[in-house]
Nucleic acid binder design. Structure first.
Lengths: 121, 121
DNA sequence: ATAACAATTAAACAAATGCTTAATTGTTAT
DNA sequence: ATAACAATTAAGCATTTGTTTAATTGTTAT
């Protein structure tokens, strides 16, 4: 098995080969990048954080976020299709909440940890 | 102190008020959203992950990523100005590596955890 | 000094993103 | 049935993002 040689040789050893081959598998990183993309928008990260704490209907989310319901609906759709939140209809209303998954819980923790690091208090 | 009333009343209690007031402080979420934005691009998340493991120069990063150096340079600039990586010049080359900060380490861990969740093996 | 190499910056452009308004679908109450 | 309310979808648009090519800056060796 042949190695891809780098223009410069600063590092050595078998570990470098492991890193390089892992890095070449771009698809390994896609799920993480996709999750981060969902939370990279400040509106969406706040919605997600809210839904980690409370189940809410669209109108109330719109009210808390002070945004139009079409705008909120758009963000909810993105979060839902990425699997971070779920929804259920009850009468005229649709209620959203964070998905009960390891990924969702992990991301919720990270959000709070980053806030802790950046806004200690 | 007066509460902002929601259109619908599904939940009750003082906790809801805490959630609402925290949510209203959009700036609390900005650092987390900014960090996630950096890692929301699949090229950038791979570069960051690499630099958590090895210090490397731009040419070698370009080679491993199979992309032009201007493109890589742009991404490095973004990562650096967000504080996730640092650089040092040595002769003609500029070496980059992950910043030695709590935030950087946290995000590195999360990337690997999400990969673990999504690609168990 | 000048040539060669490494890295960055600039300009240009296509693609993606987030929001708005308007129209549509779904559900409930009269 | 029809009116009212909740939510979604569609169309349009301005802004942002990621890349390319070309030009520029910085460093080292001859």
């Amino acid at each position: 098995m042949e190695h891809l040689h780098l223009p410069h040789h600063h590092q050595e050893g078998p570990e470098l080969e492991v890193i390089k081959s892992h890095l070449a598998q771009a698809e390994y990183f896609q799920p993480a990048a996709d999750a981060f993309k969902q939370l990279s928008d400040s509106t969406r990260i706040r919605i997600f954080w809210l839904l980690c704490h409370y189940e809410e209907c669209v109108i109330n989310i719109s009210s808390m976020m002070d945004m139009s319901s079409p705008a909120i609906s758009h963000h909810l759709r993105a979060l839902k299709s990425s699997g971070l939140i779920t929804s259920r209809r009850d009468g005229k209303e649709v209620y959203y909440r964070a998905a009960d998954t390891a990924e969702s819980q992990l991301l919720h923790n990270v959000i709070e940890q980053v806030m802790q690091i950046q806004c200690p208090k």
